[in-house]
Computed example of a mutant assay.
Amino acid sequence: MAETVPVRCPQCRREHLYIVPSYPCRCGAPVAPALLHGGIPVRVRHRVWADSWLTLRCSACGRYDEWPRPELGCPCGALLRPPLAEPSGQSPGRLSGAAFPSAVAGGEEAPGTSSPGAAGGRPDFQPVAIRTARDVVTAAALFLDWLGFERVRPVAGAHPVPGVDLRGPEVLARVDPTTSPTGPDAVETLWLHGLNESAVAVCFSLAGYTRQALGRADALGLPLFTLDLAGTPQPVNEAAHALLDTGGPR
């Protein structure tokens, strides 16, 4: 059973139950960062890529490796980093063997998304760690496939559709890999494309959404998801929760 840690957003005071992600070590044992229970999370206003990684040690084989720092998107638009049980000043590539944050390796399988869809007959979603912008698109495509949408592919060709990054016969998706929150214009553009093509429109963002984008998406009924660096999408609004409950048309 994956560890669950309560995280309270310092901006809106909403409390979330955050499932601590674990990652498969090369030896096969799952490795997870140790989080501080009751600690105050840090709000990320501007993502710095070098600060988004942790160096963790597998307690099973002793190997050090780099993994995404735990993050959580709050529905109020804040992107949060839960506090670690042991602070780390390490940046990627500095494998000095000292001052590493603690890691836990056990017999559990790596957890999938914390969505209710995993309990509705689907297997757990298996995320892909995000290290590049291409990985963000790959993670979103895998998630849509897991939801039940068929033949989801990146939009390519001589005439790409502005504001659409993934396409399937019954779904369109925008995937924002930037370090700035996604704004309302992107939400409206994606919704219009979905309306014109009679397709489900879904938006994914690595840095969360502005307050205006959240309000516009709620008014349009467009599902919004955030992606953490572990590659696990988290629902942001009611439309996203509803999509998790129903899944795709498959």
Rank of each mutant, 00 (worst) to 15 (best):
G28M: 12
S52R: 06
V128H: 10
S180V: 15
A201Y: 09
A207N: 01
L144G: 05
L147V: 13
T246W: 03
P92H: 05
G248Y: 00
I19T: 15
T232P: 03
P235V: 03
R94T: 14
E86C: 10
G107I: 15
A105L: 02
W67R: 15
A34N: 06
P101L: 11
L190N: 11
V161I: 14
C27G: 08
P83A: 14
L142V: 07
E150P: 06
P83C: 10
L144Y: 05
A32N: 01
L80A: 08
A156W: 07
S180P: 02
C12F: 08
T178K: 10
E71P: 06
Y64K: 07
G38P: 07
E109C: 06
L17V: 12
G215Y: 00
S102H: 09
N237H: 05
A199Y: 00
A156E: 14
W53T: 00
T138C: 06
V202T: 03
A99H: 15
T246N: 04
V137K: 14
T210L: 04
L79H: 01
R151N: 12
L172T: 05
L195S: 13
Q90A: 15
I130N: 07
E3S: 13
A129R: 05
H37I: 05
L79F: 00
E109P: 09
L192W: 11
R14C: 09
H193V: 07
A2N: 13
L79C: 01
W67T: 11
A118S: 13
G97V: 10
L144K: 09
S22H: 11
C76N: 12
A207H: 00
C76R: 11
G163R: 02
V104A: 06
R26Y: 01
S59Q: 15
G38C: 10
V128G: 10
P41S: 07
V7G: 11
W49H: 14
L244V: 04
Y64A: 10
E71A: 15
S52L: 04
A118L: 03
G73M: 12
A85M: 06
L195H: 10
Q11F: 09
R250I: 08
T55Q: 12
D135E: 03
N196P: 04
V136C: 13
A230T: 02
A50I: 07
V44S: 00
L195V: 09
H159F: 12
G231L: 02
L144I: 08
G106N: 10
V152E: 12
G120P: 00
V187R: 12
G183C: 09
P177K: 08
G38Q: 11
I130K: 04
L190C: 13
C74P: 02
T189Q: 14
E188K: 08
P123H: 06
L229R: 15
P184M: 08
P10T: 12
E170R: 14
A105I: 02
E15S: 15
Q11G: 08
V20R: 05
V171Q: 05
L54I: 07
V5E: 11
P235C: 06
V187T: 13
C203Q: 03
L214T: 03
L80M: 05
D51A: 14
R94K: 10
H37D: 08
M1K: 13
E108D: 14
A32D: 03
D185S: 10
S198P: 00
A133C: 04
L166Y: 09
E188I: 10
